[in-house]
Every structure is written in structure tokens, then in C-alpha cells.
Nucleic acid binder design. Structure first.
Lengths: 207, 207
DNA sequence: AGTTTGTCGAGACGGAGCGTCTCGACAAGA
DNA sequence: TCTTGTCGAGACGCTCCGTCTCGACAAACT
């Protein structure tokens, strides 16, 4: 992870003036607003700097490029400081997974969040280093929540004992993501429920 | 489709000099090479023009932006002129789907094709108009092949009769795409087969 | 044969953003 | 007090943007 050293999470050296947290917050907040309004392609470091009332160098000092900046901006805005609480567990796996996916789709319905996340995704696809950072800081933690919920289902006998949990996560969640990125396919609550049901029961239908 | 009128498929007016097909081919070929080498973000119209030995205006006359150019470049190179023959049908659905997906993964293994397709995908995510063009000209035709194969499986009783075919396509193919775009997850032949098996038999495992 | 219409390579143009660099002001540790 | 690093501001040379104009040329129509 070559980034880290220059990224905002780098630890302070012993001496010298300390980094201003308010400046960092202003930059990330503005970056989110800009990508939410203009998209990633038309986002400009100069625009963010001007709009945040900040020197360009202050951004370049802490973030190596647009992608890293947008990743931090999205992470800061969407996750916030709190712990990312567990997935719901009502006992009914199909209901719980459907609820999670419906909530995700509802977030996509907010144009600002939609554009911001599209921008981040576009950046990630082309930049292996950024995609690794995304995986470690956003995707893997979320994935862990999903695996945990599925493991409980497995222990309750609602999921086959020999099923690989990573396979299960992909089978359940990837179709929704695909319909979102390509803007085609049914993302209504019914459509989402059908995906969950299909993944759980299978298409062959021997049941 | 507002593009069309300015896109290379537009029909010729009655009089005047005709468009040079060799020029079109040179531009698209060079565009593919450039995106395959540098990626989408660093692809430049000026670079394509210079490298193809062509005036900038000649590109701007026929393509409205980078995205449209790259879409045509990928379409031209990956599909070629021929009809996109049917999916294999050996009678064993799981084997056939696995073979198709393994072939797809093998294409991703070619760095040039990988970068070109990543570039196209990145462009599509941010541009609704381009994503529609992609859907109509590449995704939907492929999807149709998949639906046809699945319908035959349905008639043979290997797929539940009440299963929606678009749901089936997403469930089977989206996980592989996800693992590719995010560069994480098992894309080995075994991993791919597990996806197909999981989608067909279901995770709940009542069989 | 001549005219019209559109294509083509070449490159000039003003403008936007790039990423680097330097400046003076300032704040925190030594 | 002195050193070290942060900060806003903006100048710098550069690349690329998208538009425009030019002269050469080819296809269709008169």
C-alpha cells in the first residue's frame, strides 16, 4: 500500500505545526459536494480547493490524486465516525437480506449519493491501488457483516452447511449492484426480493 | 438516442464526398490500442488523432466524446463483423454456463483487453447516454443469447418453469463481473463453476 | 465540364486544469 | 528562540480541450 504514507491517515511527525482537522473536513466535504454535483470526470482539484477556501498544495500534500480524495470523501460522508452496526437478524433470512438490499437501493435513489458513488466506482475500476484501498476500508468491512449474518443463518440451518460464504455474498449482492451500475433491470422491492429468493432457492427448482 | 445522428453509423447524405472507411477503421483501431495501453483516464483525442495520422476534427465530426469513441472501438475489435453465434448447448446446463464464463475470464486475462474493457466500463458508469448505447449494442444482444440458452434449459426441465430469465442471467453472470471489476474473489475455473452451481441449486440447499 | 457539397489532414486559437514550486504568515515542539 | 511543518495564495510551464479555418480532394448532380 504505497499510498498510505501520503494519505490523510498518516501519523504526525514529532515536531512542527499540527494538521488542522477543520481544513481536512472542509476539503472532504467540498469534494463530496463537487463529485455529487458534477460527477467524477468533471471534478477538479482546483475547483475543490477554491470552493473549500483552501490552497491547492494543501490537497496535493495529503492526497495523491482525485481518486484517493473521492474515496476519503465518500467514506467520511457515508460511514461517518460510528461503528457500522450489524445486519438485521429477525430469524427470517430472506426478509432480512431483502430489507438490506432495499435500503441500499433507496440510497442509490438520492441523486447526490448516486453520482458520488458512481464517481468512486469509475475511479476504482481503472486504478488497482485505489481499488485495494477501497476493498480494505469499505468493501471488506461490509462484506464481513454480511458473512456474519450468513454464518448465523448457516448455524440455524437456513443455509447449506457446505456453502462458501464469499460465494453466497456475491450471489446475493452482485446482481443488485449490476442493475445499478448498468441502469437496467428491476430494482423495485419486488425485484430485489426475487433476487434473494432466487439465490437462496436456486434456479433449477428441485424443491 | 441523441448520439446516433452524429455517430459513425449515421447514413450518408445524397451528395458530397463519401466518408473514408479506412480512416474510420484507423481511428477505431488506434483508439483501442491507446485505451488498452494507457487506460481511459489518460486516453486523449489528440493522442488518438496523432497516432492514427488523422486530424482532430475528423474524430470530433463523428464522435461526440471519448466515451462514444471507446465504445465503438471496443465493439469493433471484440465483436468484429460476424454474427455472435449461439451459446454452447451440450445438454448439460451447468457445464455450458461454466464454459462460457471461463472463456470470459480468459479474455479478462489479456491485459490489453482488460484495460480496454475497464475503460469502457468506467465511461459507462458516469454517462447515462453512453450506458444506453452500450446496453442496446452490446449488452442486450449478449443477454439475448443467454436468455435463449436458458429458455431451452427451461423447456428441458433443467430450470424451474416460473423463473424469470432476466433474473437468472443476473444471478449467474453478475458475480463473475463483480469479482473482475473489484479485483477480488475467486475467478479460477473452479470458482466460476461454484458460482454456476450455487445459482442453479441455491444456497439454502433443500435438495 | 463545371459546380456544389461534404471529407480529410493540418494546425492555430483561447481557455481550463494539471502538478510543481515559492512566498509569507503562523503554530507547535525542542 | 529556533526549527519544523501547515496553511492560503498564486505564478510557472505544460498538456489537452473543443472550435475554427485553411487548402486539397472526391463524389454526385447539372
Amino acid at each position: 500500500m504505497r499510498y498510505r504514507a501520503r494519505m490523510p491517515t498518516a501519523q504526525q511527525p514529532s515536531t512542527g505545526r499540527r494538521r488542522n482537522p477543520a481544513t481536512r473536513a472542509a476539503i472532504l466535504g467540498t469534494a463530496f459536494d463537487v463529485v455529487a454535483e458534477l460527477g467524477y470526470a468533471r471534478l477538479t482539484i482546483e475547483k475543490v480547493a477554491a470552493q473549500a477556501g483552501v490552497g491547492k498544495q494543501t490537497i496535493y500534500r495529503w492526497w495523491p490524486n482525485k481518486g484517493a480524495l473521492v474515496l476519503d470523501a465518500v467514506l467520511e460522508r457515508s460511514l461517518g465516525p460510528g461503528e457500522p452496526g450489524d445486519l438485521p437478524d429477525s430469524g427470517d433470512l430472506e426478509d432480512d437480506l431483502t430489507a438490506v438490499l432495499v435500503a441500499t437501493v433507496e440510497e442509490f435513489a438520492d441523486p447526490a449519493f448516486d453520482r458520488a458513488l458512481r464517481g468512486l466506482t469509475a475511479a476504482i475500476i481503472e486504478d488497482p491501488e485505489l481499488s485495494q484501498a477501497y476493498r480494505e476500508r469499505l468493501d471488506e468491512p461490509m462484506r464481513d457483516l454480511k458473512r456474519r449474518r450468513l454464518r448465523r443463518a448457516q448455524e440455524a440451518g437456513q443455509l447449506a452447511a457446505d456453502v462458501d460464504l464469499d460465494l453466497a455474498v456475491d450471489l446475493i449482492f452482485a446482481p443488485v449492484t449490476r442493475r445499478w451500475t448498468e441502469r437496467s433491470g428491476d430494482l423495485s422491492p419486488d425485484g430485489v426480493r426475487a433476487i434473494v429468493r432466487g439465490a437462496l432457492r436456486g434456479l433449477a427448482g428441485s424443491a
